[in-house]
Every structure is written in structure tokens, then in C-alpha cells.
Design a binder for these strands. Structure first.
Lengths: 121, 121
DNA sequence: TTAGTGTACTAAGTTTATTAATACACTTGT
DNA sequence: ACAAGTGTATTAATAAACTTAGTACACTAA
């Protein structure tokens, strides 16, 4: 269900958070779907339950999942999530563009690059 | 000459590297310009000389500066630098766009966002 | 009752970033 | 030759973040 990339410099819990976020935003996981238990996923990924717990706490904090004690963790039904994610993404884009403008890269050059680079998805 | 942002999550040496890279790419620092000595900059920024040394080693590794033992560190004359930096920046952009496409954001939406967001630079 | 669930806690190990102190070799100007 | 300034290397210590390990407790469902 989830894969960890050990060449990725980011901590494991962060990778887990990102994978679930994308699955939820893409609709692969639907509202009220049950996600794996802390212990189960830990065994599957061969990592410590504490690390999964940390990822799930973060997902709950960001509103992606909700917890029912004794039952498990479930996908939230939160229409704001995609909107908020968009804003975050656009903020990142803006930051990179700003850096680009500083060294003389033009807006058109950036746009051409985006237009041309859509094929390898 | 350089400022450190202690709210920035990135390590100090990385911030120093980034500041010099931008100054070199923008032409604020020219080829063969002398940059501050390890000890001098350390005193100026109130940080350890080892941290500056680490930043300078990284800048040298990436081709932005060259070292003359006993004399100091100087800005490289390397025409490839801007080109390589562009490629890195475009790679970052591509990564973000890919993530955006995954959750249904369109290319046009991204481009509109870039076009609209140029004013606050 | 038993098994599965989330949650909390302490302890230990690892890695990275940073500071500290010292030492050595080189260059420059006197 | 000397002194001051330079890059470079080394060792040690500290702090923070990440991860693992082990244990314990409360809740839910069959």
C-alpha cells in the first residue's frame, strides 16, 4: 500500500505522510475508508510502530484522517483539503520562480519549460 | 555581506552556500573577486569557522569558487554555472508540477498562477 | 475473555549540525 | 627571518532530530 524510499533524504514518517496525502487527494482513498492500523503498517514496512504513529498524528493534525480509539484511523471528509494543498503548492512555485527571476530567468522561459515538460508523467 | 535566518530550518552552512551562489549568479560577485576569509566571516556572523569552512568546501565542490592556499577564496569564472542552476531549478519546477497534475491541477491553472504572481518581487 | 485498536511513556542508538580548541602549511609584507 | 593572515585538518563535545525497542493502559468488537 505504501513504499519507503531509503535513498530519499526525508525522514520515514514524512514519506508516509506524503503518500497518504496524495492517495487521499487523488481519491484513491475515500472518506471514511479505514487505513491500516499502526501495528499492521509497521510490520508491512518493517519499521517501528512509533514511526507510523508519528505519521498518523501528523495526518490527523493536518485534517487528512480522524481517529476512533479502539477502532482505527479513517479518511476525513474535508472539502478544504485540496484547496489548502493547492495553496501550498502554489506557494512553493512562487518561491522557485522568485529565485529564477533573481538570476535573470524570464517568466516566458519558465512557462515554456512547464508547457514542454508535461509528457513524461 | 551575508545574513543568517535562524527561523530557517535549513542548516547554517546551507544558507551560506545559497547566499553566495545567488550573489555569484546575479553578478554581484564577479570572477576572481575575493570573498571573506573563513575566520573573518565567522566573526562577522558570530558562528564557528568550521561552519564557514564547510560552506566554502561545498561552494568549491560545486564550482562556484576556487581556493588559493595562504591567500583566500575567489569567485570562479565558470560560464556553465548559470546553465546548471537553471537545470536544477527546472527540475524542481517539474517535480512540483508533477505533484500538481496528480491531484488534478491543470497546466493552465499553474501558468495562470505564475503569470499573476510576478508583481510582489 | 480475547484479539485488535489507538495512545503514552521511557530508554537507547544513530546521524547531522554546530561549537571549541588546536595545529600545520602556505603567502604576503615588513 | 619574522609576524600576520590565509586555507586546511583533526579531535572532542554538545545538541537536536530520527528511529528503534519495550512496556503499559484504555477502548472496541467478536
Amino acid at each position: 500500500m505504501i513504499l519507503i524510499d531509503y535513498r530519499d533524504a526525508r525522514p520515514i514518517y514524512e514519506q508516509v505522510v506524503e503518500r497518504f496525502k496524495m492517495m487521499i487527494l487523488r481519491g484513491v482513498l475515500c472518506p471514511d475508508d479505514k487505513i491500516p492500523s499502526v501495528r499492521n503498517l509497521a510490520v508491512d514496512l518493517s519499521i517501528n510502530p512509533n514511526t507510523i504513529q508519528r505519521a498518523y498524528s501528523e495526518l490527523e493534525r493536518q485534517g487528512y484522517i480522524y481517529t476512533v480509539k479502539g477502532k482505527g484511523n479513517f479518511v476525513s471528509d474535508n472539502g478544504q483539503l485540496l484547496l489548502r494543498f493547492k495553496e501550498e503548492l502554489f506557494a512553493e512555485l512562487k518561491k522557485i520562480c522568485k529565485e529564477a527571476f533573481e538570476v535573470g530567468i524570464t517568466e516566458e522561459e519558465i512557462i515554456q519549460n512547464i508547457r514542454g515538460g508535461e509528457k513524461d508523467d
